[in-house]
């Protein structure tokens, strides 16, 4: 037990110190996330539409959280390839479950910090009031969607094991596709008909749908001063889907990763140069 905890901590320890050493880049990425989110949210302010502003703010915050979480996990193997340490991690006596758990926990911390920075920035740029929002409910939904995104991230992390260059590209293509089909800034019914079925496969679709209800978006009783939020029971359907996705995607992600690792060991793809 103690050994497992130390091994999990190893990945958080490494992530923390790498963040510290690359601090100026971390500041740049956070700044860019903040300005991007503010630029999107100000579209709603310019339209003098409180509901639109709120939709854009919720979309920007959630996408920021989920994409940082996904990206940090998905790119973890690519980072190791670039550093040249992948073989050392893979020959260490640490189970892949503990390895990916450690990476996911660090990713979660990272995305919480990043989203807090963006939220703080949005408070400065938009006349945002969260009075009346069901924030505990939002946290429950985010927690449920975290499971599904960890599963997706683990699956995507296998791509750079398959191919050092193409794999990293693939993780970004997948991330971009999620952004498009999940209706982050718009309802999914504005997507072309042939794309709409894909939105049902994205956990972000359910996360956004639930969070919009929990902050009162779409509720006619919502005003700029007070949000008319739905209770948690109103998003039971979305929560069930998210939890189910998490329960399927995490084991599936580990299975896919294991298969890819075995393939890489047969074909010699773990080698530093790929």
């Amino acid at each position: 037990m103690e050994r497992g905890l130390r091994q999990t901590w190893a990945f958080m320890f490494r992530g923390y110190h790498l963040t510290r050493r690359y601090l100026s880049w971390v500041v740049v990425f956070n700044f860019y996330a903040l300005t991007g989110a503010a630029a999107v949210a100000l579209i709603g302010v310019a339209a003098h539409d409180h509901q639109l502003t709120l939709t854009l703010v919720v979309g920007a915050l959630l996408w920021n959280f989920l994409s940082v979480l996904y990206n940090e996990i998905a790119m973890s193997i690519a980072y190791e390839r670039w550093e040249g340490t992948l073989e050392y991690t893979f020959m260490a006596p640490v189970s892949r479950l503990v390895h990916l758990l450690g990476i996911s926990l660090f990713a979660l911390c990272n995305s919480i910090v990043n989203t807090t920075v963006v939220l703080g920035g949005l408070m400065l740029f938009t006349p945002l009031s969260l009075t009346g929002a069901n924030l505990p409910g939002v946290l429950v939904v985010i927690l449920a969607s975290t499971l599904a995104f960890v599963g997706l991230g683990v699956m995507a992390a296998a791509l750079p094991v398959l191919s050092p260059e193409r794999g990293a590209e693939g993780t970004h293509i997948f991330q971009g596709s999620l952004l498009l089909v999940s209706g982050v800034y718009y309802p999914v019914d504005v997507l072309p008909t042939w794309v709409q079925p894909l939105s049902a496969l994205s956990p972000a679709t359910y996360t956004l749908s639930a969070c919009r209800k929990l902050v009162g978006i779409g509720n006619p009783a919502t005003t700029a001063e007070r949000l008319a939020a739905a209770p948690l029971s109103a998003v039971t359907g979305e929560l069930v889907v998210l939890v189910a996705m998490g329960f399927v995607l995490i084991p599936l992600g580990l299975w896919v990763f294991g298969r890819v690792e075995s393939w890489a060991k047969r074909t010699g793809r773990l080698k530093r140069t790929g």
Binding site: E2, R3, G4, R6, Q7, W9, A10, F13, R14, H17, L18, R21, Y22, E83, G84, T85, E87, Y88, T89, M91, A92, P93, V94, R272
Partner: peptide, 30 residues
């Protein structure tokens, strides 16, 4: 648990210090 390996290319997190790299390995091995 029984093998140590040194390869021709010293594979480390180059931005981290000696101490941080070694502590990371120690934790990785529990």
């Amino acid at each position: 648990w029984l093998i140590g390996r040194v390869s021709v290319d010293a594979a480390f997190y180059k931005k981290l210090s000696t101490r941080e790299n070694l502590l990371y390995t120690a934790l990785l091995y529990g």
